[in-house]
Amino acid sequence: MTGIDAIGAALLWIGAGFFLAGTIGLLRFPDVYARLHALAKVDNLGLGFIALGLALRADSLASALKLLLVWLLALFASATISYLIARRALARGIEPVAEMGADGDQR
């Protein structure tokens, strides 16, 4: 395994770790708004690391660039969709949870 391959593999593991954390956040966070944070940030970062890791192991510069484009497109889609979901939720009067875990209870 060459050095580049090893770095690529490490980036893939880091990406997978962020995806795991994002999924745990999705399950543990209390409401729709907080869950959007888990998706829009942690999973995007995980995808970024995976795209970068794969780009390092790609056969050609063009396919490496294509992987980065996949990430950019996913970023745009994710930002736009979170915006739409959050706006709709507010418009429907879904109250965000104001506090969680400060004294062990949820308001």
């Binding site: 708004y33 829009a40 940030k41 994710s78 930002a79 915006y83 959050a86």
Partner: peptide, 10 residues
């Protein structure tokens, strides 16, 4: 929406 701790909501 992609930065620390904030999601745009309208």
């Amino acid at each position: 929406s992609l930065l620390p701790g904030t999601v745009s909501a309208g």
